[in-house]
Write a protein that binds this DNA or RNA. Structure first.
Lengths: 200, 200
DNA sequence: CCAAACCTACGACGGCGGCCGAAGTGTTCC
DNA sequence: GGAACACTTCGGCCGCCGTCGTAGGTTTGG
């Protein structure tokens, strides 16, 4: 149940203990309402979620604390590799195909500022990404920062851009991403990051 | 990682804390050595297992207690529906496509007795099952009984047989299986079960 | 009573990944 | 040295399931 990214996103979104509508959970997971409905039915059948009808909407919440405990236990395993030589990993790493870590969170925050023109400045073609089968925008919760970073087709396109421009280079056999000197100035310029952001 | 049946079987086999060879784990999971090798590589990469070379064999064990904790937390969810009106469920239930519960465990124990002719008596065609892509025999650990019951292609064939003969009937929207009166005498005859086995 | 909003059922598509056979590498034992 | 054994890599097959478009049902609000 938790192995599917969409279902995991829905369960993670409910980890605060509150309840959300099916529509909201679909947005959280970055899928359509039809897909979300299918997933929610399975999660309820697995006794991991419960629901309550409020008029024409259905509100879902975690079925119990044991579900949350299982999710946290799995998160523990996922974030376990951090304590050691994890400073670089915590700063910038590859999360599937997009950027995660402190840099990923900072970039996402700037992207969400109203009125910014970062995507146009970077030459990201949103229309081309829209045509992809994949959801354009997805927010992925960062295990180290506990804040969202941009994922989905847009997140993948951004990381591809960073790599093409040689702002980031990936480390062999690792999720680590290293910021080049060109990258430091470019990220600072496009995303309004202070110079000492990279030297903390 | 834990969502795949083969990987889950391997991890469950290691839940006693001891270590096992790759070959042994392949047998536990009911897959070939090649497939097991692939799974074990992934589990090690995910920091869920560790290994130690002993001559020409590799012995794997759980990477730590947090892995066991996550597995137990997930098992808790899986077995949570039992406490309430769970007597029938604990006695005989459908586990995917095969029989589980006290009856499933008892049947498995009889099948493993040397010299028994139960499969031939029931008309199970082992050669036909062999040709399936699916592993013929797989042992599934019963969460309520903590003992193995037969799964895999053979387990599925057996349950199909039970249902065709109307020894077991499934309950709508539930994993519950009800033993018919014909089933009670048939199970008693073929598997040497005392009459009071069904009335305890 | 109509339009809008929310959720669901059905069907089809497509990709990911589990699976195994064959072949290769390294180790043990006689 | 040679045979048996344990594990790995490579390649290709195939089935499962996540995804969405279309369509239909239900509730809300005007």
């Amino acid at each position: 149940m938790l192995a599917d990214p969409s279902r995991a996103a829905m369960v993670l979104a409910l980890m605060d203990g509150r309840s959300r509508s099916a529509k909201k959970l679909a947005l959280d997971a970055g899928v359509t309402a039809q897909t979300a409905s299918s997933h929610l039915r399975k999660l309820v059948a697995a006794r991991m979620l419960v629901w309550e009808g409020r008029g024409r909407t259905k509100h879902f919440s975690l079925a119990g604390a044991d579900v949350a405990q299982a999710v946290e236990a799995l998160s523990e395993i996922g974030s376990r590799e951090l304590p050691g030589a994890a400073r670089e990993l915590r700063f910038a790493r590859c999360c599937y195909d997009h950027l995660a870590g402190q840099l990923g969170v900072a970039v996402t925050e700037r992207l969400l500022r109203p009125g910014n023109t970062v995507l146009r400045d970077l030459g990201i073609d949103l229309d081309a990404l829209q045509s992809s089968r994949r959801p354009l925008f997805r927010c992925c919760t960062d295990w180290t920062e506990r804040r969202p970073h941009v994922a989905g087709a847009l997140g993948a396109a951004l990381l591809r851009c960073y790599k093409d421009e040689r702002w980031l280079v990936s480390v062999q056999e690792s999720r680590k991403l290293v910021v080049t000197s060109a990258g430091k100035s470019a990220f600072g310029r496009f995303f309004d990051l202070a110079p000492d952001f990279f030297t903390q």
